[in-house]
Design a protein around this nucleic acid. Sequence first.
DNA 1: AATGTCCTGACGAACGTTCGGAAGGGAGAG
DNA 2: CTCTCCCTTCCGAACGTTCGTCAGGACATT
Lengths: 192, 192
Amino acid sequence: MTADRIKEIALKHFASNGYEGASLADIATDVGIKKQSIYTHFKGKDELFLSLLDDVLARELAFVLDYLESHKDLAVDQLLYGFLIQYQDCYEKDDNTKFFLRVAFFPPTHLYEVIVKKGYHYLDTLDTMLIPLFEQAIANGTISKEVSSSAATVAFLAVLDGMFVELLFGGVERSMKRIEASWFVYWRGIKK
Amino acid sequence: MTADRIKEIALKHFASNGYEGASLADIATDVGIKKQSIYTHFKGKDELFLSLLDDVLARELAFVLDYLESHKDLAVDQLLYGFLIQYQDCYEKDDNTKFFLRVAFFPPTHLYEVIVKKGYHYLDTLDTMLIPLFEQAIANGTISKEVSSSAATVAFLAVLDGMFVELLFGGVERSMKRIEASWFVYWRGIKK
DNA sequence: AATGTCCTGACGAACGTTCGGAAGGGAGAG
DNA sequence: CTCTCCCTTCCGAACGTTCGTCAGGACATT
């Protein structure tokens, strides 16, 4: 399907050049068609972009859901640390996260409201999935009672964002170094 | 000086629309001149942009330097926490950080090398300023000997980035919440 | 015959940029 | 004091390019 190839290529372009920086002509060239042919599959640039945004958010959530489901029997520290590592590995070469972060932080102005709405939905879902984990670990005694579940969640998401930032800016090896340090301090800060 | 007014306005535009999204015509309109007049003061868009980048990095470093200098007699935990708070306060309404982050993470491709070079210089300087603080605190016994000074520094910069991210995406009140949680866990993780 | 896909060709709009000239003020000479 | 020259600042008009978009036709598949 050509529509899928367009999406695939467009994701790369949006991820590395942003909404304004990505041109339909360049995308079409990479696909191997003329830019006018894109209009056979999408109404225009906005529809292509928003369709990609939905895909990206869905994939992002699916990954988290899948990971938590398939590792739910792990100890909470291994689960969380593994989550960081897997997230990094999984998206090392993928443009999904790059697209996601770029759009989340610097959305094209005329699509601001739609994007923010979708973004918050993602964040809320993430929160809902993580909170019970921490509550259980606190009840278990694995995590100190001095630490609230919400503080642990918020701080963990901050560690995650810190990883993203370094992943984007400095690449994998710098990001790995940051994960090691952040996780070491983080776990030392919440464990019993 | 018109050049300064152009810079001032251009900073806003670059910060909120990115390199490609900011147009010289819009900037000129906000300044109250025609876009051609910009060429009296700058060779072109690139020179304006790079000139702004230098200013932004210099201001960013100056702020850190100034803060550390004027609070060097504080206890390390108050110093670091205060640093987070002050950074947030200082740049709440300022476009400096927004410009900085946007450019750092998503640089315009044709200026990539120049930007990355300047960016790493900033990071290195920051590192050089922070490391001795942690070394001293570890020697003091304020921070646990189990924590290396480099791990504490790297993790602290991650906390800082986490704050930036939330500052950009969610605004001040969400960022404040994140700082509270992150700092609580961070300090609990490195203290003796 | 109908449908879906890709093409050629062209559109107006916006982009960064260049050029030539009009205004204005300051400096120096008469 | 005035005239002239220079220099800075700004703008009108236009440049070539690229942008997203639309209309219409060719060709294949069904």
